[in-house]
């Protein structure tokens, strides 16, 4: 029963991924950037999973892990945005966001540990 449920979930996931990747094949062959726009949907799927973990996580530590992961994913999002729109300042946003996410993760870890921020 568990295997069947796993198989159903995996086939649904694989079908949606294949649809998202293979659907813009004509635009991939004609060297347009339409393919990159479809990559956003895959990253949206990842964001949805992280948001689910933030919503349902049983402990505060789970939520902190999901927030850290979300920060790293947004860097990749900014990179694809920069390639598809031909504007390089999106990568400035990506670097700044990575820095902020790192400091935020360290602050959350300090909070979990139960110490003050100045130790």
């Amino acid at each position: 029963m568990k295997n069947l449920r796993w198989l159903m979930g995996f086939s649904f996931l694989a079908a949606s991924l294949l649809f998202i990747i293979l659907y813009p094949i004509p635009s991939l062959l004609s060297w347009q950037s339409g393919f990159l726009v479809h990559c956003f949907f895959i990253l949206m799927l990842c964001f949805a999973m992280c948001l689910f973990r933030i919503m349902a996580g049983p402990t505060p530590a789970d939520r902190a892990v999901a927030i850290d992961t979300l920060g790293i994913l947004i860097v990749g999002f900014c990179a694809i945005l920069s390639v598809s729109t031909e504007r390089d300042w999106y990568l400035d946003i990506a670097i700044a966001w990575a820095l902020q996410s790192f400091i935020g993760a360290l602050a959350l870890a300090k909070y979990l540990e139960g110490r003050g921020f100045d130790e």
Partner: peptide, 9 residues
């Protein structure tokens, strides 16, 4: 840092 904080909490 997150792993250590989780274990300490």
């Amino acid at each position: 840092a997150l792993a250590r904080g989780a274990h300490k909490s």
